[in-house]
Design a protein around this nucleic acid. Structure first.
Length: 412
RNA sequence: CGGGGUGUGGCGCAGUUGAUAGCGCGCUCGGUUUGGGACCGAGAGGUCGAAGGUUUGAGUCCUUUCACCCCGACCA
């Protein structure tokens, strides 16, 4: 992609109506566009990042047997009345609307009831289990107050997965597999080091649920961490009982702010019983299905990555999610050589954003840094004279001069 | 939802005791320039969030309203 073809522009000024670092940088660099409070559009650049994150999540969910589907944003009232969750006093973030004939429908803030209603139609026998389904979906939540840029919006993309199992054992196997898969996801996203499986309040069926919390100053949560033991506890369940169950003492834990990037739940058979989702076992007995629910906030993860890695020059994307791998800068009248390099790199499948504008070097370098592309390659007359390319890493600013061959080796 | 704050060209801002708006960036045209956000010249672009009111006169005062931000509460 050539910069001259991108309709988005970078801006030196941060928007006055955003304080969150992630929103300021993502808007300045042209990844997102603010439509209204807590509602952001994703430009071609932003969409590339979102899709890269989804790709990683998709691969890891598929690896543990998840089957991808896509539910709807319009949901019938009846599905939610069964579990009492249509009631605004039970769920206060509903967007609700009406069809032309006055039928009430809800806009999806979650898909638990929706997916279970659908699965009820298909899952009949123990032979159908276990079944694990997931989707990437836009969730609509009527939050009283949006904040923190794309880390807490009224509309956001979430991966939600649901496991249906015959019993606690089968459920537990998948639950543990999911924890392992999630760890791989956060590793691949570059967040592994600072992401903890965190004990949190668990609802009716289990003592705890597990949250995936990434240490992040901009996060909304407070957790207590012991790095050596790999234990983390959400402050909401930090008490003597929890500490004794986990076998740690209070003074072994360090308080830190964090962002919830994933959350997994064990529903047991509670929801199945409410919704009448039963299977027939080997003895022709009706048994309620064991349910699990597993979420990853895709766009929130994007915000967390910006928050954690950005420096004073701009965004720093991990290579795995970066919209492009290389930012190609031409300086002066070197279009022939720069075009040739662009063609060569792209023909080898390397994603290049080619700054072919008639701009001064400083402007191009500044944009390369603001955009956070992992590698910058510079072509200039004096470099051409030496038959070299300049190769600069965004994260460290480390720079080396490479021959064309060495450059290709580095990038492939 | 409680408290606080802000709305003035695309973005960021300034507008003193009321007299129909100005700066930087960006944009357009011409020229020069090319290793850290270039320079010169010439331009385009806003009725000041909205509605109502006071006044000879309102971006400046009053009322209502909308939007946005922050703190708190809330967060399946």
């Amino acid at each position: 992609m050539r910069v001259t073809q991108l309709f988005t522009k970078t801006s030196k000024n941060a928007p006055a109506d955003e304080v969150a670092k992630n929103a300021q940088l993502l808007i300045r660099a042209g990844y997102i566009y603010k439509v209204m409070a807590g509602v952001y559009a994703y430009t071609p650049l932003g969409l590339r990042v979102v899709e890269n994150i989804k790709k990683i999540v998709r691969e890891e969910m598929n690896a543990i047997g998840g089957q991808e589907l896509i539910m709807t944003n319009l949901q019938p009232k009846e599905d939610w009345e069964i579990t009492t969750r249509w009631d605004d006093s039970v769920v206060d973030i509903w967007f609700k609307t009406k069809l032309k004939d006055d039928t009430e429908v809800g806009l999806a803030w979650s898909h638990e009831e929706a997916i279970m209603t659908m699965m009820k139609n298909y899952i009949k026998s123990y032979k159908d289990l276990p079944a694990n389904v997931y989707q990437f979906q836009t969730k609509l939540r009527n939050e009283v107050r949006a904040k923190s840029g794309i880390m807490r919006g009224r509309e956001f993309v979430m991966k939600d997965m649901y496991s249906l199992s015959t019993d606690a054992d089968q459920h537990e196997t998948f639950y543990q597999a999911t924890i392992a898969a999630y760890k791989k996801v956060y590793d691949r996203l570059g967040l592994g080091e600072d992401t903890y499986v965190t004990f949190a309040s668990g609802g009716a069926f289990t003592q705890f649920s597990h949250e995936f919390q990434t240490i992040c100053e901009a996060g909304e949560d407070v957790i207590y961490v012991n790095r050596e033991k790999g234990i983390a506890v959400n402050e909401e369940v930090l008490n003597d009982e929890t500490l004794s169950v986990l076998g740690v003492t209070r003074d072994e834990l360090t308080e830190t702010k964090s962002a919830e990037v994933g959350n997994i739940f064990n529903f047991g058979t509670e929801k199945s019983e409410q919704m009448g989702i039963y299977y027939t076992d080997e003895n022709d007995k009706k048994v309620p299905i064991f349910l699990g629910s597993y979420g990853i906030g895709i766009t929130r993860v994007m915000g967390v990555i910006v928050e954690k890695f950005a420096d004073d020059k701009g965004i720093v994307w991990p290579e795995s999610v970066a919209p492009f791998k290389v930012y190609l800068v031409s300086i002066g009248d070197v279009a022939t050589e720069a075009d040739a390099l662009y063609d060569e790199l792209t023909s080898k499948g390397i994603e290049v954003l080619y700054d072919d504008r008639n701009e001064r070097p400083g402007a191009k370098f500044a944009d390369a840094e603001l955009l956070g592309i992992p590698y910058r390659v510079t072509v200039s007359e004096r470099l051409i004279a030496d038959q070299k390319f300049e190769f600069t890493r965004r994260e460290t600013s480390e720079t080396e001069l490479l021959t064309g061959k060495d450059l290709l080796d580095k990038l492939s």
